[in-house]
Design a protein around this nucleic acid. Structure first.
Lengths: 94, 94
DNA sequence: ACTCTATTTAGATTTTTTTCGAAATAGGGT
DNA sequence: ACCCTATTTCGAAAAAAATCTAAATAGAGT
């Protein structure tokens, strides 16, 4: 199950912030790193995990590597959460 | 933000399994622990994190402590994910 | 081919999380 | 009061994750 990887990826506040920064527009690794008080290497490590989890896609352009959101992976998570019974209403037991 | 705690709680496979076991009916700490090959102390630790995250509620009865799901906390997560753009369709940029 | 810039990888260290066994707590029942 | 069962807390050890600096890679432009 790749779900575990997804949940783990999303569990870190730095990685969630990266994803949030990617919501409106893609960003290069450098731009992303600039938003944090962490070394570029550390941010690169987080980026690698996000990519491995399928949460972002990359495009290479010139020397730059652009990262963009891949929302499709969120749906698995959504499904898991829904299955737990979190559909906003009050559903009865059967 | 308590969201961080929630995401962290959900990130561990043992804890997710505990929640899944609680989907249909409440369980005592002992019953929960019996489903894992972990010491009772370890399971108790996971239970504590789930409780701290608000994902479960407890009721004391006799010597037993019963755990049950609290689905309301899931909604915050749901909201976060939705905000990331994961609403199943293809929403355009503004 | 050389150099510059952007990014990733390597190796080591620190921090956080998970785990255990043993001891402590709590609430009955006798 | 004592014992029994269920659960939690404590303190330490092991495992996993995050972080850093320095070195490696990659691609462009000259």
């Amino acid at each position: 199950m790749a779900l575990n990887q997804t949940f783990k990826a999303i569990a870190d506040p730095v990685r969630r912030q990266i994803l949030e920064g990617l919501k409106s527009h893609r960003q290069s690794a450098g731009e992303i790193a600039a938003a944090f008080q962490l070394s570029q290497a550390t941010v690169s490590y987080h980026l690698k995990l996000l990519k491995a989890a399928g949460l972002v896609n990359t495009t290479k352009e010139k020397n730059f590597v652009y990262y963009e959101l891949n929302t499709s992976v969120f749906e698995e998570m959504l499904t898991w959460i829904y299955r737990m019974g979190a559909m906003g209403g009050s559903q009865d037991e059967d």
